[in-house]
């Protein structure tokens, strides 16, 4: 669900556009450090993956469905800066090619779905990774909690933007309650799918999971004596 044209007023849209431009600019610099000269092909393919993953729908009640945002998932899998780039490119393609999300709201959508979900998701993930036991099996759990919190965080930032430039005469407290309630539900779906996907990748190719790299590097080979019959 992307913000369309006319939902926020023009000054707010332009301001979020500027914020998004700065964030993407910084991400371009930092992503090179995450991926070096493989950035373009890898980020492009990961963006295509995020696009496909966003097609995963889950029912959130009242006959409506939410879809995966993928910010936290991408941040854990490929690193936060590459994730911001991938999600931003996905949003730009959706706005330009499929009219999903308004062109004037592209900055707003990049800030909400790209920067906030990937940023909050990565921050939560890093904190949990430090606190929880240093085992690979903890990575999907951290990723799930990160995804769970990243979605209501985006909803809260949206409500803040709505307070500044909203184009509807609705009580702000109502908006916040509705948005948070709704997005906690979406967040639960996001957390389940994110955790399961990360767990699937960790169990087959842990070396590909950016958030697990340090753990993989610290692993040592061990000889086991007994063999289970």
């Amino acid at each position: 669900m992307h913000v369309p044209d006319g939902f926020l007023d023009a000054p707010t849209s332009i301001a979020t556009g500027a914020v998004a431009a700065v964030a993407v600019g910084v991400a371009l610099q930092r992503a090179r450090r995450e991926l070096d000269d493989r950035t373009a092909p890898l980020a492009g393919l990961v963006a295509a993956f995020v696009f496909a993953a966003q097609m995963v729908n889950f029912p959130v009640g009242a006959g409506t469905s939410g879809h995966l945002m993928g910010g936290a998932l991408a941040a854990v899998l490929v690193g936060p800066w590459t994730a911001v780039l991938c999600v931003s490119v996905v949003l730009a393609v959706q706005a330009l090619v499929m009219a999903d999300g308004g062109l004037t709201a592209l900055g707003t959508n990049i800030v909400l779905i790209g920067v906030v979900t990937a940023g909050v998701g990565w921050a939560v993930f890093v904190v949990l990774r430090r606190v929880l036991p240093q085992r690979l099996s903890m990575i999907p759990i951290s990723a799930a909690v990160a995804a769970l919190l990243s979605v209501p965080a985006a909803a809260a930032v949206f409500t803040g933007l709505f307070a500044i430039g909203g184009q509807a005469p609705v009580d702000l407290a109502d908006v916040l309650t509705a948005m948070l309630g709704w997005h906690v539900l979406i967040g639960i779906g996001e957390a389940a799918v994110t955790g399961l996907v990360v767990s699937a990748v960790v169990s087959t190719r842990p070396d590909l999971v950016y958030g697990a790299r340090r753990l993989v590097a610290a692993r040592t080979a061990a000889l086991r004596e007994e063999v289970a019959a």
Binding site: P41, L42, F49, A192, L196
Partner: peptide, 26 residues
């Protein structure tokens, strides 16, 4: 949602294939 574990394994496989395709393209 009951079949999400299977869906997630598919998505995990899709991610690995995308990443590896990216490496091959590079």
């Amino acid at each position: 949602p009951r079949h999400w574990p299977a869906l997630a394994r598919s998505l995990g496989a899709l991610f690995i294939r995308c990443y590896e395709r990216g490496e091959r393209v590079h």
